[in-house]
Amino acid sequence: MTNHTPAASADDAPADIREMLRLSQQQNEKMTRVFDRPTTIIVLTWGVAWFVGFLTLWSATEGNPWFRTPIVPAGIVFTVLMVAGIIVSAVVGSRTSRGMRGAVAFQGTVYGISWAIACMAVPFFGGALLANGMSPELAALFYPAGYSLVVGILYLAGAALWNDKPMLGVGIWIIIVGIGAPFFGAPTNYLVMGLLGGGAFLVYGVWLVLRQRRRVARYSRTDARAAVN
């Protein structure tokens, strides 16, 4: 919590008007952080999950020329990372609008539920295809592409909901990578997913963190400049 909270006895009184403007901006900035932080957490989580998960899968095949990870642990690591990603997305999304009602809460809840439904739909669909004769080779192409489509579209929906242009870019990128990767065939598609998909999430996440830092630094010295605007 901030150290700027005025003492109870003082806060009934107005401060210097410059200080009043700063107080209001500070509180406004805090609210922006409340709504922005979940995006950063979700993006970084998927960055780690895809980067580590897909590279581990790739390393379990003959694709990795340097070393080989055993297939079963690799599969477990991948599954655990994907499930963790889904849980983090849903929990963080629903906690954002904690204690809020109205459009803001409805959007947050629906978005969180959308992640859970969409991410569960992919393995069910894959299961149906497997039951109807999809080969493991094809499955290796289907799952990453299926997840990319779902995640990409969820990002597009998020961009529309929160008027978030960088999120729009990420959504389009994920769909391009996800649909492009199968053309490389298995297991190279895992490498493409890990580096271009997971890597892109990580770069975007770091950029979000840096933007946040810049904004915090800016508002603490805006008083003079805000007055000009």
Partner: peptide, 13 residues
């Protein structure tokens, strides 16, 4: 300032 950051039809506990 805090409440103004919410939409017109949203409220906070």
């Amino acid at each position: 300032s805090t409440l103004a950051a919410l939409d017109a039809d949203s409220s906070m506990s």
